[in-house]
Design a protein around this nucleic acid. Sequence first.
DNA 1: GACGATATATCCGTGACGGATATATGTTCG
DNA 2: CGAACATATATCCGTCACGGATATATCGTC
Lengths: 115, 115
Amino acid sequence: MFDGMGKTLASGPSPLSPAVFSILLALADGEKHGYGIMQEVRDHAPMGPGTLYGSLDRLLAACLIEETGLTDDERRRYYRLTGAGRDALDAEAARMQANLARARRKGIKPIGVRA
Amino acid sequence: MFDGMGKTLASGPSPLSPAVFSILLALADGEKHGYGIMQEVRDHAPMGPGTLYGSLDRLLAACLIEETGLTDDERRRYYRLTGAGRDALDAEAARMQANLARARRKGIKPIGVRA
DNA sequence: GACGATATATCCGTGACGGATATATGTTCG
DNA sequence: CGAACATATATCCGTCACGGATATATCGTC
């Protein structure tokens, strides 16, 4: 993917980078434009424009997102998830769940969670 | 940190790269040597020696792991988690849990999990 | 019409990733 | 014994994601 990770993005089961995951997740509940994505993501994981637009380009190239072609403001470019994009999100969620389960089996307790 | 992520490792709340996470997790239930880590991790996330030993160096530098100094085989170098390393694992688990929760709120269903 | 928020685009330095390669010792088996 | 393979660590280096900085333009508002 991404993921600071080689050819992470298009090459199958590779994990998604935090930036890419956040972007895909932001698009999971509807079309958004770049700046809108940045605003939604801002709190969880501050993202500079370089990361945002660079990631959008890669996601477009990998066909995980696509442009809608419609806009309510000349400046805005709207994006939506493709089927493959949703699949990637599902796969990533499964990966996270599996990792979390492995961690729990090893006695790892998420901070802020009291036994 | 890591993670194809700037100075991910030592700089606080930054997420852990998959490679680093796997290594720390492998050490969570006891001391291990490099090759032993590679074997445990192999199934979940195949890792070449470059990634393994490079990550070990960075983890040592960031004081998330340390060498035990003891060995049962001249060739082996054993590592264990430091307190900071365990904290990093806990924080990462919390991060994953939060992301998973956000994903579920958006209707993302991990693959292989039927409604 | 000045100013700040909105919006996108590009540049580029840094550094993680990870395959390839090198080297050496332990083990196994004919 | 010796060949072949597993164990074990170390280093090199090309590629590419990250992400801050910067540039540019339009919108809203006072």
